[in-house]
Amino acid sequence: MTGCGSGGDKDGGKKEAGAPSASSSTARDSALDGKGGSSFDGVYAARSGDGPVGLSVYQGKAALYADGGKRACTGTVGVDKKPVAFTLTCADGNTDRASGKVERSDGRTLVVSWAGGRKDTFSRTGDAAQLPDPAKLGGGGLPAPTKLGG
């Protein structure tokens, strides 16, 4: 293991073949909370080969920062679709984490596979909060997350 991407399964990858993940199906079925938000709303942090990655989800909108806070991306999370998917645009044009699908979610951990080939295992670090204005997420001055789960 290189330390990049996901931290792996706690059960060592031993799952019954063909058995659906209870946490992912539960997350999809109960994703919408009826108040404009979802069970995905929250603040998350992950470790990656390019440093800490922060993710905030609130009422169908998402903001992500990576590369020591130099890369800021904003967009949407389609919680009403299966699978739940992120569609982000990064201020610097980077597409590594522009499109991603949720593989697993249990309320504390969120595993996202990005179309750019990365896989991040996020740990929930806080409750949902309204996202800042995208103009303020231009990168450069964003702090790196200080609390990483795991």
Results as ranks from 00 to 15, higher is better:
M1F: 09
M1C: 12
M1P: 09
G5F: 04
S6W: 01
G7L: 10
G7S: 12
G8F: 00
K10R: 14
G12F: 01
G13E: 05
K14G: 01
E16K: 14
A17Q: 13
A17E: 14
A17P: 02
G18Q: 10
A19N: 08
P20T: 11
S21F: 02
A22W: 08
S24C: 09
S25Q: 14
T26A: 15
R28S: 10
R28T: 11
S30R: 12
S30G: 09
A31D: 06
A31Y: 04
G34A: 15
K35V: 07
S38R: 09
D41Q: 06
G42M: 03
V43M: 11
A46G: 07
G49M: 07
P52F: 10
V53K: 03
V53P: 00
V53G: 03
Q59E: 09
G60Q: 08
A66Q: 04
A66V: 02
G68W: 06
G69Q: 03
A72E: 06
T74I: 11
T74D: 05
G75I: 13
T76P: 04
T76V: 13
G78I: 02
V79L: 06
V79A: 15
D80K: 15
K82H: 07
P83D: 10
P83G: 09
P83V: 13
A85F: 07
A85W: 02
F86Y: 11
F86A: 10
T87R: 14
D92I: 11
N94P: 00
T95G: 01
D96E: 12
R97Q: 12
S99T: 14
G100T: 11
G100H: 03
V102F: 01
V102T: 13
E103H: 00
E103I: 15
R104N: 09
S105E: 01
D106Q: 02
D106W: 04
R108S: 13
L110Y: 02
V111K: 10
V112W: 00
V112T: 09
S113E: 03
W114A: 08
G117Y: 10
R118A: 13
F122M: 08
S123V: 13
R124P: 01
D127L: 05
A128G: 12
A128D: 02
A129V: 15
L131M: 05
P134F: 02
A135E: 04
K136Q: 13
K136S: 15
L137R: 06
G139F: 00
G139A: 08
G139M: 05
G140C: 11
G141H: 12
A144V: 13
T146F: 00
T146C: 00
K147M: 05
K147N: 12
G150H: 11
